[in-house]
Amino acid sequence: MKDKNLNFGKSIADKIKQTKDQENDHSKTDSSAPSFDNAISKIASNKDEAMKEFNLKPITIGGKYDLEGEEDITLTILAKKLSGGIKQELASRYVREGIKRDAKKYNIPIIK
């Protein structure tokens, strides 16, 4: 098992409350964080510096998809983290889910 379902064993009322809390956490953004567009351009202009500044580590994209434009998607995800749009612990799962969504959004081909 990769991640625990932390709601397991809790009452349905607690499950609902916990889900709401998680959604609220995810929707919160750091007001001091740059916007997503700014984050993208900052990383794109000088990735090494931005990664060092924000203590980011490269994300390896694995799984069943081979990607063209992998670097662009990595940048997208880093930018999402940087702009507070995604929580650290969700990043790895986001990568898997986000690949297809972001690839479509940024017109990056996916090869099965």
Partner: peptide, 11 residues
Amino acid sequence: EEKLPVEIANK
């Protein structure tokens, strides 16, 4: 399956 939320990965 693609439409389902990512939380399903934990179950």
